[in-house]
Design a protein around this nucleic acid. Sequence first.
DNA 1: CATCATCCCTACCTATTGATAAGTAACTTG
DNA 2: CAAGTTACTTATCAATAGGTAGGGATGATG
Lengths: 193, 193
Amino acid sequence: MDLKVNNRNTSQKILDIAQRLVQTRGFNAFSYADIAKALQITNASLHYHFTTKADLGVSLIERYDRRIQEALADIDRSGAGAADKIKAYVRIYSEVLRDDRMCMCGMLAAEFATLPKAMQAALDRYFDGNDRWLAAVLEQGRAGGALRFSGSSSEMAQFLIASLEGAMMLARSHGGMARFDAASRRLLAELGA
Amino acid sequence: MDLKVNNRNTSQKILDIAQRLVQTRGFNAFSYADIAKALQITNASLHYHFTTKADLGVSLIERYDRRIQEALADIDRSGAGAADKIKAYVRIYSEVLRDDRMCMCGMLAAEFATLPKAMQAALDRYFDGNDRWLAAVLEQGRAGGALRFSGSSSEMAQFLIASLEGAMMLARSHGGMARFDAASRRLLAELGA
DNA sequence: CATCATCCCTACCTATTGATAAGTAACTTG
DNA sequence: CAAGTTACTTATCAATAGGTAGGGATGATG
């Protein structure tokens, strides 16, 4: 199945480039031509791997989601305490930003209204997954005394995600990395982490 | 100068529609044709009022900035205390959201990398103005004992803006108005407002 | 009333968008 | 080795993008 491996390679390369484009410019601000140029491949070939741009978008979100879920599972397996888990979560964001990218799904959230239905549904799943994981960690942390916060854990989880995404977004255009670092420090301090 | 008034009317109508489009779909996701259709005017007429889309974009930001600055000046003139000023600031955001819109400049911040230089510069001015006003109110509030927070007032101001923008963005696609309200309540409580 | 600016129109234009049809070289497998 | 699969290609498409040239109607002004 060497061919399938090849396919996988090219498809993955397409996804890699498309992901960077979404993270830096947004889904509506790049075209198949951009990927084709970067990959030295024809426009039509892209349609072989991803029939429509919506298809590409869904694959993009699903791969991103899968990777995040794996990273979160790794954090869980590390046996770290709740405070360190939250810190590790924040680090995922800051590493993306250090690479001059926005969180892909944060970018897509801004464009939400213009996205194909299938992409919207995939995005829903992404954020739900993040919410659930964070809420569980927060709950665990509060029960164990490692974290403190008011309100429900899932409300706090949603607040954290929104703040991190917002800080990331504004860091990219105003204030840079320092702005994100300041925001995340503040959030962690607030939690007593 | 009835004509100029007319011009102003049409130009303002164009800006009104364009602004709503930016706030709901983003700058890259609407075209002159969308405005023309909504206004029952030809595509070419739009170019009479705003030669290029970049021009339109800059006018859009400058008008938005002007209005916000006026609103902030009104708040200042109201003689309210720092806590109430912050609440009034948050209310501006929540009213925009209630109208099913994203903060226009938050949306543009997401698209920042793809915007014409002149629009980027105008956006910089917008956020700087907001930062300055918020930082001043925070400083005043802390000095007077009405607000409490750690770190510099300008850092706190940037944090607030980022969190509000992020909450707004995620509220539009996930969780709705309630998510924004929960986030803003948390931020205000944190400040002791 | 002639002139002028204002404001909008018709009629184009070029570039780019995502997408398709049909063909082909390379490899794999029964 | 014949048949099928994979991974592309060339060539083309209709739709849409932002933008321009030039004209005409309206109303204000000297």
